[in-house]
């Protein structure tokens, strides 16, 4: 339905309604801030609309949308980190401070510790952990989203869990 000309708008609206929350939370866990997330979610769905013709039906729609969303989030973080190249300012610290400001994060102390520990991980490892732990996606689904082999993902997730466990224990 989404690819037909007449029902394209209606179909796209349904698609946004279907996936907006999942995409939002995936991005929000990465960039923490609501307004940044809002921009990125909108950009994600605009790209979905613009590239609808190139979507191959043999892959799942949500993994395709997730791929666009993760690319948006990763390139956003990379841009921010390039902008904060000054040694006194670290963007991970900026994200960490957002966890404590009371507006961006409403979790309890354990959750805050978990997210602070997550911020110490490389971005892609963070994504793997989030997709596995929070989203409860299967490895082959994550593999389709990130374009990484299942074996590499398992290893990455294992390392991430160990790092987080150590981080939480030391705190």
């Amino acid at each position: 339905m989404i690819r037909g000309n007449e029902s394209r708008n209606y179909g796209f609206n349904l698609l946004v309604r279907q996936y907006q929350e999942r995409v939002y939370h995936l991005i929000r866990r990465m960039v923490i801030d609501h307004s940044d997330t809002d921009d990125l979610v909108q950009e994600t769905f605009i790209k979905v609309w613009q590239n609808m013709e190139s979507f191959r039906s043999d892959s799942k729609l949500f993994t395709w949308i997730y791929r666009i969303a993760t690319n948006e989030a990763l390139s956003f973080l990379n841009k921010k980190k390039r902008r904060f190249m000054l040694p006194l300012v670290d963007y991970d610290r900026v994200l960490e401070s957002k966890l404590s400001d009371g507006h961006s994060f409403s979790g309890d102390e354990i959750q805050k510790k978990l997210f602070k520990a997550l911020l110490t991980l490389p971005e892609k490892q963070r994504l793997v952990f989030q997709m596995k732990y929070f989203e409860e996606l299967k490895y082959d689904e994550i593999s389709e989203v990130l374009g990484t082999s299942v074996g590499a993902l398992k290893a990455s997730y294992h390392i991430a869990v160990k790092k987080i466990e150590e981080n939480l224990k030391t705190d």
Binding site: R28, R29, I32, H34, F105, S106, G107, I110, V161
Partner: peptide, 20 residues
């Protein structure tokens, strides 16, 4: 898969980020 550490099992996964 690997066993999830006890510390992660106790984390509530929902409603971590307030949405307007």
């Amino acid at each position: 898969e690997m066993e999830i550490p006890e510390v992660l099992k106790n984390v509530n996964k929902s409603s971590l980020f307030p949405v307007p």
